[in-house]
């Protein structure tokens, strides 16, 4: 996995595993800038998702960055910061 960028598809896969999908939410829609609240994911779901990412990629995410990530784009950026910095 190392060296591979973390993509929206990776995030969707992680979210499904970590927290499922709320009724009425289409993760395959245009969600990159949709607030996690609107997608039905609260902080606990994102903590679990963050943990799954850390285990899968063997990285330690910045707690504040993950905590502050309100959209899939921000979450993906927070992960990729670490993926690129650890593989650089």
């Amino acid at each position: 996995m190392a060296g591979t960028a973390f993509t929206l598809d990776d995030l969707k896969r992680t979210l499904r595993q970590a927290a499922g999908v709320a009724e009425g939410v289409d993760l395959d829609g245009d969600i990159l800038d949709t607030d996690f609240d609107a997608l039905g994911y609260e902080s606990l779901a994102l903590l679990e998702a963050g943990s799954l990412v850390e285990r899968e990629y063997g990285i330690a995410l910045d707690e504040e960055a993950v905590n502050d990530a309100r959209t899939p784009r921000a979450f993906i950026d927070a992960v990729n910061t670490h993926l690129t910095s650890t593989t650089a």
Partner: peptide, 8 residues
């Protein structure tokens, strides 16, 4: 049950 509930 919703898939949101299953992991937890």
């Amino acid at each position: 049950l919703s898939s949101r509930l299953l992991p937890q």
